[in-house]
Amino acid sequence: MAATRIWIKNPLAVFTANQLDAAGGLVIDNGLISELLGAGQQPSRPCDQVFDAREHVLLPGLINTHHHFYQTLTRAWAPVVNQPLFPWLQTLYPVWARLTPDKLALASKVALAELLLSGCSTAADHHYLFPDGLEHAIDVQVEAVRELGMRAMLTRGSMSLGEADGGLPPQQTVQQGEVILADSQRLIRQYHERGAGTQIQIALAPCSPFSVTPEIMRQSAELAEELDVRLHTHLAETLDEEDFCLQRFGLRTVDYLHSVGWLGPRTWLAHGIHFNPDEIARLGAAGTGISHCPSSNMRLASGICPTLDL
Rank of each mutant, 00 (worst) to 15 (best):
L12A: 14
L12I: 13
L12Y: 08
F15C: 12
T16V: 06
A17H: 15
Q19V: 14
Q19N: 14
D21Y: 07
A22Y: 05
A23F: 08
A23Y: 06
L26T: 02
V27D: 00
N30W: 04
G31P: 04
G31M: 02
L32A: 10
L32E: 03
I33Y: 04
I33E: 02
S34K: 02
E35L: 00
E35V: 01
L36A: 04
L37C: 01
G38W: 13
A39G: 03
A39N: 02
Q41P: 08
Q42G: 03
P43T: 00
P43E: 00
S44L: 09
R45E: 03
P46W: 10
P46L: 15
P46C: 12
P46I: 10
D48H: 12
D48G: 11
V50H: 05
V50S: 06
F51E: 02
F51H: 01
A53Y: 14
A53E: 09
E55W: 14
L59S: 14
P60I: 03
P60D: 05
G61F: 01
G61T: 03
G61H: 06
L62M: 11
L62K: 08
H66M: 05
H66E: 03
H67A: 12
H68K: 10
F69P: 01
F69D: 02
F69S: 08
Y70P: 02
Y70A: 10
Q71P: 06
L73A: 11
L73H: 07
R75A: 01
R75H: 02
A76K: 10
A76P: 04
W77Q: 04
W77A: 08
P79A: 13
V81G: 02
V81A: 09
N82D: 15
N82S: 09
Q83N: 08
L85H: 09
L85Q: 09
F86V: 12
